[in-house]
């Protein structure tokens, strides 16, 4: 079981919406990546999944969206529920139809399709008329006006920020209730990151889309999220409200590099962190 070492606030025990129960993930039958991760995303909230490289953020998201199997990963224990029904055995196609969609890290645009065509493919799972398709497209353009101005360009030749917007917009075309957003800030200029997070917040507020957000940019993620989970080595080591996590001394020290007890040498921090990990 996961042990929450420092629950700075009561865990988000609102009505269950997306619930991950103690999942274990093994790649290639031998590599144990997740060692029992549980988390909860309440309806209409943004939940941040934080942690260093290789902590298991992406694997957690892929376990939920069922993209693991295409990478020889397997959820061997635990379950995933969405709106009270188990979804761990569904194909990604069925899951998208139910309203859960993943935006993968690394901006996977269809490079040879134009931005507009990219968006249109996003509506694949919905059988809708031309009019409705047009409407959905306009809605995405409303949130991402930049995409509209470059709609005819091949996605492979657009900027990193535009590609990130393209993949989020493409996911929106499926009209999801829940987006699993993996590392949207990766390799982007801070200003663009800010712009994208603002849009995410807007979508969350106006379209009532819930987000599970995997991020390395802890500071930024906690500014926009409602709750946060911190993963280390395939386990949740800390969880709580975003505000609480942001002010938590440990988080500050490990992830934000700020400490109340003045500057610390890197060696000490590392040591402290290692000890902390043993505790969990």
């Amino acid at each position: 079981m996961t042990v929450a070492t420092a629950p700075t606030e009561a865990a988000p025990a609102v009505e269950s919406y997306l619930t991950v129960n103690n999942i274990e993930v093994i790649y290639d039958h031998v590599i144990l990546v997740l060692k029992g991760v549980s988390l909860n995303v309440p309806k209409g909230k943004i939940v941040a999944l934080l942690g260093a490289n290789g902590a298991g953020k992406t694997t957690t998201l892929k376990a939920i969206s069922n993209l693991l199997r295409a990478e020889r990963g397997d959820v061997t224990k635990g379950s995933v529920e969405f709106k009270g029904r188990r979804v761990d055995q569904l194909s990604p196609n069925e899951l998208v139809k139910r309203g859960v969609i993943q935006v993968m890290e690394g901006r996977h645009c269809f490079a040879h399709l134009t931005l507009e065509e990219n968006l249109l493919t996003g509506a694949y799972t919905r059988s809708i008329s031309r009019g409705e398709l047009k409407q959905s497209l306009e809605k995405v353009y409303h949130y991402f006006p930049r995409l509209k101005t470059r709609r005819g360009s091949q996605a492979g030749y657009t900027s990193g920020g535009e590609q990130q917007m393209c993949v989020i917009g493409r996911a929106l075309m499926a009209r999801p209730e829940m987006i699993l957003l993996d590392e949207p800030s990766m390799g982007l200029a801070p200003q663009i990151v800010e712009e994208i997070f603002e849009i995410v917040k807007g979508l969350n507020g106006q379209e009532n889309v819930s987000f599970l957000l995997a991020e390395q940019n802890t500071m930024m993620a906690l500014r926009y999220a409602d709750f946060g989970y911190i993963l280390e080595n395939g386990r949740v080591v800390m969880e709580g409200g975003a505000e609480g996590l942001r002010t938590n001394e440990d988080v500050k020290e490990f992830y934000l590099g700020i400490s109340s007890s003045g500057r610390k040498s890197f060696k000490d921090i590392k040591h402290y962190r290692r000890r902390k990990r043993w505790l969990s």
């Binding site: 993968m104 996977h108 269809f110 990219n118 493919t121 694949y124």
Partner: peptide, 21 residues
């Protein structure tokens, strides 16, 4: 719609899978 999906799959299997194709 199918034609676009075909080209999408040709470009990136994983991404196509992730959006439910």
């Amino acid at each position: 719609r199918i034609g676009r999906a075909l080209r999408a799959v040709a470009d990136d299997h994983q991404a196509a899978l992730s959006i439910g194709i």
